[in-house]
Structure formats: C-alpha cells, structure tokens
Design a protein around this nucleic acid. Sequence first.
DNA 1: GCTGAAATCGCCTAACG
DNA 2: CGTTAGGCGATTTCAGC
Lengths: 166, 166
Amino acid sequence: MPGTRLDPIDRKILAELQADGRMTNVELARRVGISAPPCLRRVRTLEEQGFIRGYHADIDARELGFEVQVFAMVGLVSQAEADLSAFEDRCRAWPLVRECHMLNGEVDFILKCVAPDLSSFQSFLTGELLTAPNVASVKTSLVIRGAKDEPGVPFDVLEARLSKSA
Amino acid sequence: MPGTRLDPIDRKILAELQADGRMTNVELARRVGISAPPCLRRVRTLEEQGFIRGYHADIDARELGFEVQVFAMVGLVSQAEADLSAFEDRCRAWPLVRECHMLNGEVDFILKCVAPDLSSFQSFLTGELLTAPNVASVKTSLVIRGAKDEPGVPFDVLEARLSKSA
DNA sequence: GCTGAAATCGCCTAACG
DNA sequence: CGTTAGGCGATTTCAGC
C-alpha cells in the first residue's frame, strides 16, 4: 500500500491542505488545476490511504494559558519491549505530554510537554513522571522561546528529490 | 487583546476545531449548542485574535517518503542576542528543520528535523548545520519510533483548571 | 450588544458521459 | 477527468431579547 505512488496533482493537494486545511474543495480544485469532483475524490482517497491523518486547527497554546513548554529526556531502567510499551502507554495517558518519541543513544525517550505554569509542570514531574515505574532518570529543559514550529512536511524538498530521481 | 477572555462556548469551539479542523460550521454550531451565524462570528473573532493560527492537514511524513526524524541539540559559541537571532533565522530557512526551540540549560537549541533518509540527513548535518557560523556542538538522536504525537493543547487540563479557580 | 431566523448565494457531491 | 444538477452549508440581512 505504500506502493501507491502519488502523482504531481496528489502532492499538490497535500501541500495545499497542509498549508490551509479549511480551504474549500472548489478553491483546492482551482489551485491544482482540475475540476471539483475529481479533486474531492482524490482527497477522499488520500484520507483513506492514510496520507492525510486528519485536520486540526492550530491553537496558540500561550494565548490559552499554557505558558510553559518543556522537553524531558527520559531514561528507563529496563528497555525490554514490554517495559518500553508500558511507558509509552503511560505517556499517551498524560495530557501534559503532547509528544513522546523513542530515541537511540543514551536517552530512551524525549517528551514534549506543555503546562499552564512552572508549578503545575513541577507537580507533574515529581508526582507522575519521576515516580512512574521503570523511570531511571529525567532531564528537563524549559523552552525559553520558540523560533520555528512548522507542522508537517517540507514539500519543496520532496519535489526537488523527485525531479532528481526522474 | 490578550485581556479578552474566552467563555465556555469559545473554548468548546477551539477544542472541536482542534480535533477536526474541517468540521462544517453548522456541525460545529450544533456541537457547541448555538446556531450557525453566531458560531461563525465567534470563529472569525478567534482567528482574528490569534487564538486560531491556522488550519492544517496532518500529513503522514513517513508515507510520503520522509523516513527519518531526528532531534538535534545545538550549542552555540556566542549567546549574544544578535547571534541567537541569526541562528534562528538560519533554522527558519532550512526546510528539513521543522521546529527550533531555544532552551535553558547546557544546550542552547533543540531542533526537530525530518529527512527522506539517513544519508540526506547526514549531508544536511555535515554540510549545513555543523558548518553554520557560531555553531559549537551538535548532538543528534534518531527517532526509533513515535509513541505519541498530539498536535495542540490539552483542553481537559484547561477546563479542570478553570473550574478549580472559579 | 449579542443571539436566532429567514433568505440568498455558493459549495458539496452524487450520477453520467 | 469533466459536466450537470439537486441538496446542503455558508454567510449576509434583519428582527427580537
């Protein structure tokens, strides 16, 4: 199923919907150069095939009262698969943890967390994360300021790559 | 204008649009319990006030051929403001760098990068990042597997917090 | 002032060529 | 993939609380 390759129109659709997920279908169709019905069919197919996982409003967390953003590097005691999965499940259940990625190297996981303020993060850290089973070490780094936060994928890199291999 | 606080309906609108950014306005209105015209006006206001920064399709990077995701910890030689800004500008210009956050602690920046494969990431690393002006050290960690990647903000935490302070 | 109701306009989305 | 066409949503206008 990853064998289903995308043609240039599909990639344009993905790029446009990544840039503006609320664009109307007729506007999208106009931009990619086809008429509306086939455009909608393509979008549905891209959704069904999993290229499009969903659509989300991009909310300003700080404006909403989440002043604090923290990266946490977590080392575990046991790296047996069952223990890794158990920790991942725990991360999925913690609302303050927005991302959890397993890494190579000395640290096992990196977590991106948000919190309303430092004290609520620290109570999460000491009350939940540090006391969770199998957690050996946690190093946290506060985000002082965000410089870039682009959701998604660089389509220009993709197009450049495809034209080279053509 | 950050003084403009949100009522429960506004917060529900944000939560719903974060969960499904392509929801129709009438469906949104139904879910938040008001009729369509005032709902649309609220959405427009939330957009203008910056609570909603945009709408994006969530694209599966791996399906599209970006097999590699890497976190890079960057230390700079000089942390003078002009030098920090210069590095941030450079990050904004690199398409493979999707996020760049300034941190406290020993490392100055954390970068989240994507690449089609390891060799193209490594050519970016050695050819661009490591050779950029003012870069003192870069430590990279490959993402082995992603366990959680929730865009946005935990609205349940927000509501719990608001009901406590009420 | 903000909400809801009615009406117009434009879009979505089937069916067919 | 395009065209047609019918139903539904979006958006303005206006009246009511």
